[in-house]
Amino acid sequence: MSGREVVVCATGTANLASVFAGLKRAGGVPRMAQSADDITEAGHVMLPGVGSFGAAMAALDKSGMTAPLRARIVLGKPTLSICVGLQLFGRSSEESPGAVGLGIVDAPVTRFPETVRVPQFGWNDVSADPGCHVVQDGFAYFANSFRMTEAPAGWSPAMADHGGPFVAAMEKGSVVACQFHPELSGAYGQGLLKRWIDLPC
């Protein structure tokens, strides 16, 4: 048990019980962010993601957490972003026209094609780039209708396929973004959470 604190950033309607339980099983000590300063000062920050792109950004903007979150990602501080949390790294999404994302990467977020079931619910085969250290090859659990199709420059991607390749995860230093839900991905996900929690602050 590392017993390391993880500050969880509220985005409205996330599956917080699953996130908290998953972090605890991986040796973390989760607590909710109380203020924007929390996001700046915390060693580890997690951005859980359930809900739409627009609603999640609106929640971050309202709580004043958008700027400190963007800053710690740019600085490379340990940050783990999940599901729509990965999509928020982009500038915009087909899901919420007009909503402005964090703009960390320049990659469009689009809906899966009509040729496959949407939402994507279930376990998909993730292939991690050799540059990935936190994300590994294996099966991870996804629940999403939108995705990035191209890995952004400067990030080590992990890819999966649902009606064509999409970004299953990407990482750069201590910043990791997963389209899948590590907290729901069994032993695979727990291993990922533990590797991220164990990163030095």
Binding site: S18, A21, S185, G186
Partner: peptide
């Protein structure tokens, strides 16, 4: 939930959004 590391769907007696919220 404390122990389970895979997704959990719950049904039964869901009559309004607040019931769903309590289960989530």
């Amino acid at each position: 939930r404390q122990e389970l590391g895979i997704p959990l769907t719950v049904g039964g007696g869901v009559r309004k959004a607040a019931d769903a919220g309590a289960l989530l």
